[in-house]
Computed example of a mutant assay.
Amino acid sequence: MTTKPEITWADFEKLDIRTGTIVAATDFEKARNPSYQLEIDFGDLGVKKSSAQITSLYAKEDLVGRQILAVVNFPKKQIANFFSECLVLGVYGEDPKDITLLTTSLPTKNGMQVG
């Protein structure tokens, strides 16, 4: 497995990774690949939407109330008729369709920053 090019500390500091709690998850029927539309509460940052290809390991009913990690400072990205406002973070499995969500080991306040 190869690694990506080395970055500087300043590059890492540009990422705004926060904790959030999924408050809604619905099927994203217009997506090319099986996906959910998520609404995620980031505390003082408000609720942001994201499209996530996590259907192989997670039922949408099991996602509500789950705390996750996401990058919140990307520009909005249009996917079909939906605007994704953050990038939910996960780890690819042996099968790239099997994505395990990243979370904290203990609950945290929504919107807390990773650093």
Rank of each mutant, 00 (worst) to 15 (best):
G65T: 07
D11T: 09
F82V: 04
P75F: 09
F42E: 04
T103Y: 01
S35K: 05
E13S: 09
A80M: 09
F42M: 02
M1Q: 06
P96N: 12
S35G: 10
I22W: 03
Y58L: 03
T103H: 13
Q67S: 08
E61N: 12
F74T: 08
T104F: 03
A52M: 02
K48E: 05
Y36P: 03
A80T: 14
N110D: 15
G20E: 05
I40L: 08
M1E: 12
Q53K: 07
F28T: 04
E85M: 04
W9R: 09
S50A: 15
S51T: 15
N110H: 09
L57T: 01
V114H: 10
K49R: 13
Y36F: 15
L57C: 05
F12N: 08
A10Y: 07
V71T: 12
V23K: 13
L106T: 13
G93Q: 06
E29H: 07
A80P: 01
T8H: 05
A31W: 02
L87I: 08
K30T: 13
E29R: 08
G90I: 07
L15T: 12
F12Q: 03
E13N: 14
R32C: 02
G115K: 13
T2F: 07
D41N: 13
E29L: 15
I79M: 00
K48N: 04
T100V: 11
F82G: 01
D16Y: 03
